[in-house]
Design a protein around this nucleic acid. Structure first.
Lengths: 332, 332
DNA sequence: TTGTAGGCGTTATCAA
DNA sequence: TTGATAACGCCTACAA
């Protein structure tokens, strides 16, 4: 089923059919109608591969992401897909499991081989896993937008303001009269974990409180680790009266410990989380947390990318740093 | 950067380069080496669009899914991606938001236009949203595997055994001495919700207990709806001593109500959920629930599809119904 | 084992 | 406004 079949049935030339279908050049009304009829009758579906080959545009965006089974990445991907779909772009999806260089190169080669028009790099920055950015690999890539990593000169990065979010949570704890505010951080290899920790520090400093390292414990984002972390913290600093936990899952673990050791939340220990996962409103007690616009993150990434691809001018009007919001509930 | 550039540099013909790269025809060692050197030097990346055009194979699988922001679909997608990647296939992702026919047709046309070699339909069966399957649209599609829908003759369907899982949970409640076991179901428009309800009924019947409709309330999968549902159920049947909730999120809402009305869990009211979301092990009390292999579901779907695409013979060895497992914790 | 010619399905160019 | 022709980048036949 090719354009020639349609042309034959519509008694027109392939180019006229093409023009009738794409609207790139004018076509008489009569031929257009005959073409449309033929298309319908044959159930003709243009071959995008061939079209892309000659147009040198695939109308496809490559997305590389990580940890899709978790809340953040999957929501972001949903945002990316919707926005891309609205602009008529398809998504080529690649998941990274481990992020060593070999896999990175393979992933990007797979996408460029399929001639994606742009790439969205939605892999969290962990350790040195973004070092390839400085290499010459980047030069052979189409336009690319990075998500959730430290800003770098000459690169388009869209990110949540983790630091501001964490600071908001901590300031709220301070306003509740807490003065010894601990931190359960994410793994500090993660840029986002470091940012949230910096926000905790910032929040304390702005209130004139000391940000002692002895008030911090590092977790791995899992509820288990939140549990372990709070236990350790309570041993070291039994006097903590406030706690900022870098994600809601760890906060859930922490809540369990608080219950076990009979610290009332929020009376004895006020707790704030980060992420606003759907469950957090139903924790006992419901969790005060930082909500961030993950879908918007995805949508904005796509818009940024398309301004690059299609060479539009309105880049400046799209924000690159998204502010989270504090959701106040029972736990603080 | 085309195959001709490589050929020129390697002092060979384009076809020799092609053969050296694909290994489809023998090539002398010396030319292979020269080709490899040239490829490396030029950073040549074969154009898959062109290759697909002539091969009539894109090595791409189209995935249509729904509700990606939720636990189940995103895990399944992760399984699909990994298995596809291991077999050298890329993924073209399309999300359905509403599932009316127009969108379905557009989604499938988009995939076939890009000449995907097969399709995985991972959209839950809700109301009449699968009616297109009986139409002639299906005939114009490449091999397709359906996930999580009612079995249909002549179609490949891979699904979790929701019914067996629910029955396991209910039988466990019975073993704990519960005789008045309620149900908070998902929206009964969903096939999976109906299956879980049927499993509840089955579990009761096999224990010689009556499955009264007055013991059931319909929710919408959300924690809120679980809350509302249990309240309503307790009004109607204050004597319930056991409860099967069709997903963990609603179970979380139910736990909150139980706490509020001072029903101890599990002593006064034993509760079992379904899904085994990561948080459920940390609910207070930790939730007894049904765990199902969502990643495997995705992997198996891909394997099924590839046997279809590549015409292999071992179809029979791959299961089409996956059995869940009961995870026993504090709540029951 | 190597090279040449032709075609995969589409669009751009150019002449009519 | 239309149609023939030549690409897009690759692979398969076929000939050498």
């Amino acid at each position: 089923m090719t354009i020639r079949d349609v042309a034959k049935l519509a008694k027109a030339s392939p180019s006229s059919v093409s023009n009738a279908l794409t609207g790139k050049r004018p076509v008489s009304d009569t031929t257009r109608r005959r073409v449309q009829a033929a298309v319908k009758k044959l159930g003709y579906n243009p071959n995008m591969l061939a079209r892309s080959l000659v147009n040198r545009r695939s109308n496809t965006i490559g997305v590389v992401t990580f940890g899709l089974e978790y809340f953040g990445p999957s929501r972001t991907l949903a945002g990316i897909e919707r926005q891309a779909d609205e602009f008529g772009y398809s998504l080529l999806l690649h998941l990274l499991h481990t992020s060593n260089d070999t896999n990175v190169i393979a992933a990007l080669n797979g996408l460029t081989a399929r001639r994606v028009d742009g790439v969205i790099w939605a892999v969290p920055e962990i350790g040195e896993n973004h070092s390839w950015i400085t290499g010459e690999l980047l030069r052979r890539l189409p336009p690319i937008v990075f998500l959730s990593m430290a800003p770098r000169p000459n690169l388009t990065v869209v990110a949540i303001d983790n630091r501001a979010g964490a600071a908001m949570a901590v300031r709220h704890l301070v306003e509740q009269g807490r003065t010894k505010i601990g931190l359960i951080s994410g793994p500090l290899e993660w840029w986002e974990a470091r940012e949230r920790k910096a926000g905790w520090r910032e929040g304390l400093k702005s209130a004139g409180l000391a940000a002692s390292e002895r008030l911090t414990v590092e977790g791995d984002w899992s509820p288990e680790s939140g549990e372990v972390a709070l236990r350790r913290l309570l041993e070291r600093r039994p006097d903590v009266d406030g706690l900022f936990v870098a994600n809601d899952q760890m906060a859930l673990g922490a809540l369990r410990v608080a219950r076990e050791v009979h610290r009332r939340v929020p009376e004895d220990l006020a707790i704030a989380g980060f992420d606003n996962i759907p469950e957090s409103a139903y924790f006992p007690p419901s969790l005060t947390t930082v909500s961030h616009p993950l879908m918007d993150l995805g949508r904005i990434a796509v818009r940024k990318l398309l301004t690059s691809i299609e060479g539009r001018q309105d880049r400046s009007s799209i924000p690159e740093v998204l502010r989270p919001a504090l959701i106040i509930r029972e736990s603080a």
